[in-house]
Design a protein around this nucleic acid. Structure first.
Lengths: 260, 260
DNA sequence: GAGTGGTCTAGACCACTTA
DNA sequence: AAGTGGTCTAGACCACTCC
């Protein structure tokens, strides 16, 4: 976009996009001139101040929000976000969901046909209904993840569908039955996704917000006995595997000064 | 945006954004009418076909790309992306970087002052120089991750700076010294980030592209002996922790059909 | 040079929160 | 009612790839 000239000789072309440059400038300002929770000037003011269109300014803010440095709320404003919180995901010794106090609160259970992708993981035949629990993970008073737990009826044979009506009671019953099985192993995958409408609502985000999808398989009796798909807010969470949850990490400045 | 009316009574307001609806429609079309690698019509055509502005159409495509369903390349076009590849990140038994064939190829090593965030993890004093290796991870012929490895000089006391000049030779020397230490434990964190310019270039993406940052700490002698920050392409990678790397997972359809 | 996706503009209106 | 961020438009030009 800008071209640097010395005399009349064009030395270097700098096609660095405006929004990228803006992001850098604002990012540095956040480090030096703002503190956590502070509100920024509104987008129209900022755009005018930097002499760019609002759409361009927004592109920069979007990136900063993606990196967890800003928080924007419609009707309210843009604030400086606190550092991402470390959310433990590993649990060194493997355990069924619902064991002990694992920071999740169940609040619904129905029988439903799982998405094709989940059915494939479970190894169930298409259209087969499974228990489908819904749980929410709350940390420091903030909802950080919504989870869908899929348990084929075959995994909990002693649970009759008549035991409890759909709802929290049945959710507890399913989790209780799972504890009785021997957990032979588990498996995790993390990928980027965008929030479905229902997850977004529970996580207090807009639909389509970037999220980290954590898919876990639980093995028992030589089969996949259960599968969970957890949707973590990507803006506020850093998933930790091990004991690093208590350490402050911030990737705000990634540049490295070279020496030799 | 659209309002559904029966007679003159407004029954339900559907403020679902256009781009969100578009994303759904195109997503379904991808499942039924397109196969992996196929090229879509260009953005101007698509926008006209759906009767929206190009910016709106792009918002939908951006989301689909974020979810790993599309691949867009400037000057070329938009193609249907293959399912994300599972990339093993855990290594069940812990090991130093560079041990055995771990799919990483080192190609540089310099001494430099690490970013403040990394220095904090290492527990080094500010401005202290550390060995700074750069590695690339290639899977199926595709670069999937770029990594920065930080090793304080104190961790490899037997390595004299004069041993080897900066470059691949010194990189090998540092890794070799690390193997001689006893690894007492390691630690991982995963979070969302955007690609720095240098990483983006090596990963064949534009700067700012969404990436998964994997930060690993290696413990030895009661200290943090090394830290790595790996930048994985979020569009093409699914990080796996365990043995699930070989299984096909696709989160294209997440909807669940309810029953009871 | 033609065609693609990437950037940018200057407006408009909408949905939401707060006072 | 005022002010915020979210959505959308209709254009323009740029950087890149490929023929």
């Amino acid at each position: 976009m800008r071209r640097i000239r010395v005399g009349t000789t064009q030395l270097e072309s700098v096609p660095e996009p405006k929004y990228w440059h803006l992001k850098t400038v604002i990012g540095e300002a956040l480090d030096s001139d703002f503190s956590v929770g502070e509100i920024l000037p509104n987008e129209r003011d900022l755009a005018a101040r930097f002499g760019v269109a609002r759409a361009t300014l927004r592109q920069a803010l979007e990136q900063l929000e993606l990196e967890g440095r800003l928080q924007r709320r419609r009707g309210v404003g843009t604030t400086v976000a606190p550092p991402r919180m470390g959310v433990e995901v590993s649990t060194t010794q493997q355990a069924w969901p619902g064991s002990a106090q694992d920071a999740w609160q169940s609040f619904d259970c129905a029988k439903a046909v799982p998405p094709a992708a989940v059915a494939r993981l479970l190894g169930t035949v298409a259209e087969e209904e499974t228990y489908t629990l819904r749980r929410l993970r709350v940390t420091h008073g903030q909802p950080v993840a919504a989870e869908q737990l899929y348990v084929p009826a075959a995994s909990v044979p002693e649970l009759s569908a008549i035991d409890a009506p759909p709802g929290t009671a049945r959710a507890r019953a399913v989790l209780r039955e799972l504890q009785r099985l021997e957990l032979e192993g588990q498996d995790r995958a993390v990928e980027l996704g965008s929030a479905r409408a229902d997850d977004a609502k529970e996580l207090d985000r807009l639909p389509g917000a970037p999220v980290l999808l954590v898919t876990t398989r639980y093995f028992s009796g030589g089969r996949t006995a259960a599968v969970t798909v957890a949707t973590y807010r990507a803006d506020t969470c850093r998933l930790t595997f091990g004991a690093s949850g208590d350490v402050e990490i911030s990737h705000h400045d990634q540049e490295t000064r070279r020496a030799s």
